[in-house]
Lab assay of single mutants.
Amino acid sequence: QIFVKTLTGKTITLEVEPSDTIENVKAKIQDKEGIPPDQQRLIFAGKQLEDGRTLSDYNIQKESTLHLVL
């Protein structure tokens, strides 16, 4: 699982696999929060994550925290 922290300070927990794409993660966030993926920007280690890449591409491991910017 990974954590996604929103600007409001809320933390969302997501069940993911390293092979999941960023697009996939955004879809999971939409399921939980109702935020359309095209409004979501995910930041990890100061980098904006691209939809077509996977979590493992960015070396995002379990218990990692991503930041969600709208």
Score class of each variant (00 low, 15 high):
Asn24Ala: 15
Gln30Lys: 12
Gly34Asp: 05
Asp31Cys: 12
Arg41Pro: 01
Leu7Asp: 15
Thr8His: 12
Leu49His: 00
Ile12Trp: 06
Ser19Thr: 14
Gln40Gly: 04
Gln48Phe: 14
Glu17Asp: 13
Lys62Pro: 13
Leu55Lys: 00
Asp57Pro: 00
Gln48Asn: 11
Glu23Arg: 13
Pro37Gln: 10
Thr13Val: 11
Leu68Phe: 03
Gln40Cys: 09
Val16Asp: 00
Arg41Cys: 15
Thr6Gly: 06
Gly46Ser: 05
Gly52Phe: 12
Asn24Glu: 12
Glu17Pro: 03
Gln40Ser: 04
Pro36Phe: 06
Thr6Pro: 04
Asn24Phe: 11
Ser56Glu: 10
Leu42Ser: 00
Ile2Gln: 01
Lys62His: 14
Lys47Met: 12
Thr21Ile: 04
Gln61Phe: 09
Thr11His: 06
Gly46Tyr: 05
Gln40Ala: 05
Pro36Leu: 07
Tyr58Pro: 00
Ile2Asn: 01
Leu7His: 15
Gly52Cys: 10
Ile22Ser: 02
Thr6Ser: 06
Ala27Cys: 12
Glu15Trp: 14
Leu49Lys: 00
Asp38Lys: 11
Asn24Lys: 14
Leu49Met: 06
Leu7Gln: 14
Gly52Ala: 11
Asp51His: 06
Thr65Pro: 03
Thr8Leu: 10
Asp31Tyr: 09
Gly46Asn: 06
Pro36Arg: 08
Gln39Leu: 11
Glu50Thr: 06
Gln1Ala: 09
Lys26Ile: 03
Leu49Gly: 01
Pro37Cys: 10
Val4Ala: 02
Lys62Thr: 13
Asp31Ala: 15
Ser64Gln: 09
Asp31Phe: 10
Thr13Trp: 07
Glu33Arg: 04
Thr13Gln: 08
Gly34Tyr: 04
Asp51Ile: 05
Ile22Trp: 02
Thr65Asn: 04
Ile22Val: 12
Asp57Ala: 06
Glu23Asn: 08
Lys47Arg: 12
Ile29Thr: 01
Gly9Asn: 06
Leu42Glu: 00
Lys32Gln: 13
Pro18Ala: 09
Thr6Asn: 06
Asp38Pro: 06
Thr6Cys: 13
Ala45Thr: 05
Leu42Ala: 01
Thr65Met: 09
Leu70Met: 13
Asp31His: 12
Gln1Pro: 08
Tyr58Trp: 02
Glu50Tyr: 07
Leu70Tyr: 11
Ile22Cys: 03
Gln40Lys: 02
Lys62Met: 15
Thr13Ala: 09
Asn24Met: 13
Ser19Ile: 07
Arg53Lys: 14
Lys28Asp: 02
Leu68Thr: 02
Lys32Met: 12
Asn59Ile: 03
Leu14Trp: 01
Leu68Tyr: 02
Asn59Ser: 09
Gln61Asp: 09
Thr21Pro: 05
Leu7Tyr: 12
Ile35Arg: 03
Leu14Asn: 00
Asp20Tyr: 07
Ile35Val: 08
Lys47Trp: 09
Asp31Arg: 11
Glu23Cys: 14
Lys47Glu: 15
Ile22Asn: 01
Ile60Val: 09
Leu68Cys: 04
Phe3Lys: 06
Val25Glu: 00
Pro18Asn: 07
Gly34Ser: 05
Ile12Phe: 11
Ile60Phe: 03
Asp20Leu: 06
Thr21Ser: 08
Asn59Ala: 08
Lys26Pro: 00
Thr21Lys: 08
Gln48Asp: 12
Thr11Asp: 04
Ser19Tyr: 14
Lys5Asp: 04
Ile35Pro: 04
Glu33Lys: 04
